[in-house]
Amino acid sequence: MKNVKILCVCGSGTVSSAMVANKLKEKLAKHGYAVTPVEASPNSVESALAAGGFSLIACVSPVYKDYGIPKVNAVGLLTGLAEQQVIDDCLKILNAK
């Protein structure tokens, strides 16, 4: 298993990001990634990223600023409609590392 850190961003930095964090952990484990999720609100992205080592940012609230770390729109994980698309987007970024 490869260890990866993913920042999960939602409005309050709690509820939806926790859902996303769990989903990513579960789904990406099947592809050989051990995900360490960190949850943040859009206002705390910068301070959360300061810890370093993040491979990507999974957002369910818009993050407009470019932090030099790839972003994935993770809303599909909440609706289940585009779940695979979100996972594919993440894998594309993770596999390229």
């Binding site: 509820v15 609230s61 609706t79 289940g80």
Partner: peptide
């Protein structure tokens, strides 16, 4: 600021919430 509507396959839902 952070809307909570979600379009599912057949209907729309929303999950309004706030801090603890």
């Amino acid at each position: 600021e952070y809307p909570t509507g979600l379009q599912l396959k057949t209907i729309g839902v929303a999950m309004p919430h706030t801090a603890g």
